[in-house]
Write a protein that binds this DNA or RNA. Structure first.
Lengths: 246, 246
DNA sequence: GAGTGGTCTAGACCACGGT
DNA sequence: CCGTGGTCTAGACCACTCA
């Protein structure tokens, strides 16, 4: 997906329908049509862009394929809200219990600072930029099943700091959208097996060095900008990861 | 993806372009165009189906989106061969070394019988149907990194039995295609951590019960029929699984 | 140059959702 | 009923590949 800046001019070398797609994308990201309000109808857009309806349709089809828009026959074309796009658990892939019932979440630590170098690299942060570091646990009943570290650009996620001091939402992605206007779009997961670090071992009540699964995740937004770096640990007994691919 | 039988008649209630898509799909599965031979050009197909070129284009676009066809500007429209679709290691995601160099594969056991009930269930096999069971190892150099059990319908994969008695190909999916005419299209993986069963422990030279990652995989063909059930074990030290999702 | 797919037009008619 | 998107047509011109 192309990155579209706020004042991007259309790339005239592109086919017209892709220029229109880029323009619409920019306006979608700028929240031009929100809260269930439909986009202008095809013929209006065709008039605005001074192309035929077919060309507008092609631009809209691309955005539908990219998951940005939904079209409802007889009603209109709508922006797919991030909350729906996540469809609750789109990127949540752990045990069955977790799927039936969201685990309770507790925030153990929340700080602003330099953070680990690896997180800075992954997020592509500038030298002076601060990082928001979050350490959370997820538990089913009384049993802690996941120890999770999240790193975010403090600049981009400034409102989150105050929010997380009061609330412990089970899922962060909808909050990224509603609070910080950040849509998540792609996840890259990497699983390895490692000895449990001491601070994570403590939350499970286990000895440091106990074998555990480490799940790294880099999330990007629709412009392919990295937005979140996450490292989770799960103990072997509770480990369950399911994925479908084509 | 809709299941298309060999003598399926088009569903007249469907839009014309989907009827055409179904018809082309049936012919693709019947190997109407193979070995890099292109499909007839758009205008030929339009003539054959007695529709306009635009309608044929729409059918072709659907098949491209489904990964069945590839279109090359100026050359033609081609069936995406399973071998390319798998892109060598599409579902094989272990260490970096393996990515650079295919692991050597050894077949330890090959038999035809009832197989385990779970494999029968997953493959949706009829009561009397026989199962082809394969136990293989994959090694980098002398170190065995994977113990792999594969179950297939013996009826559908009959030619494979004789072939595997002589050959140990590093990847089975291209053989499924070339030998048995079976295209793989979708994989569902499920990862858990379990004690190593005795027969798998032996191939690693480890004690039974050593913790290991178990990877279950159900593969389906383009008609969503299950074709392969696979259970692999990897030792914790060599475990590395990477996945991207949207 | 011949043949292919890629883009685009300016219409047509239909099916669906709400009034 | 009107306005929406869904399907389809019969062309046009362009860009790419290969002989």
């Amino acid at each position: 997906m192309r990155a579209i800046g706020p004042e991007a001019a259309p790339d005239l070398r592109l086919p017209r329908y892709l220029q229109i797609r880029d323009d619409l994308m920019r306006r979608i990201c700028a929240r031009a049509w929100s809260d269930g309000q439909p986009l202008p109808a095809e013929d209006r857009l065709a008039g605005e862009f001074e192309v035929s309806v077919g060309t507008v349709r092609k631009a809209l089809q691309v955005l539908v394929a990219e998951g940005m828009l939904e079209r409802i026959h007889g009603k209109g074309t709508f922006v797919t809200r991030a909350f729906e796009r996540i469809s609750m658990m789109r990127f949540v892939r752990f045990s069955e219990e977790e799927r039936r019932e969201l685990p309770t979440t507790r925030c153990l630590n929340l700080e602003v600072g330099d953070g680990p170098p690896e997180a800075r690299t992954r997020l592509g942060l500038a030298a002076r930029e601060k990082l928001l570091s979050i350490h959370r646990t997820r538990a089913c009943g009384k049993e802690v099943i996941l120890s999770e570290h999240v790193w975010l650009s403090h600049k981009r996620f400034a409102p989150l700091e105050a929010y997380l001091k009061k609330e412990s939402p089970p899922l962060l992605y909808p909050v990224y959208d509603s609070l910080c206007g950040v849509l998540v779009s792609r996840a890259m997961d990497e699983l390895t097996m490692v000895p449990l670090p001491a601070r994570d071992a403590r939350v499970f009540g286990l000895a440091a060095g106990t074998p555990a699964i480490r799940i790294e995740r880099l999330m990007t937004d629709p412009s392919e900008q990295p937005i979140e770096w996450r490292v989770s640990y799960v103990t072997q007994a509770r480990f369950h990861y399911a994925i479908e691919s084509r």
